[in-house]
Amino acid sequence: MAKMTLETLRKLREEQKEVIERRDSGDKSIHIIVGMGTCGIAAGAKEALNVFLGEAYTRKMDNVVVKQTGCMGLCYAEPTVEVKMEGMPDTLYGNVDAAVARKIVNLHLLGGKLVNDHVFDYPARDINKE
């Protein structure tokens, strides 16, 4: 590494800031939670997860955090993905393959519209609540 000037230091800081902020989930407003149970993985949840991560990365969607969770109980509709963001209801999507994942990014995250034919209800929500 060559010795830095003021400019190179500032540039480096901007670059590194992005890298380290990706770790930080605290302030991010859009949460995408992918069900990564055995059933989910078998049904292709990994591909969906990669799409979300990839899209968020390439489109520099800094406010998106992609989390994993276990089986959400809708094994018949795997892979399942939950999306939480301000201005939209918390939504549970089922049968999310790579294509659907892209659709969710384009419509739900960027367009503010639900991807209707993949919306599922939370199973036994009334029971799970407590």
Partner: peptide, 18 residues
């Protein structure tokens, strides 16, 4: 060091120097 720099590291020194 990059991680320190990312979190405002050496920004104070910048200010003091310049």
């Amino acid at each position: 060091i990059n991680e320190y720099i990312a979190r405002q590291g050496y920004a104070a020194l910048e200010k003091v120097l310049f």
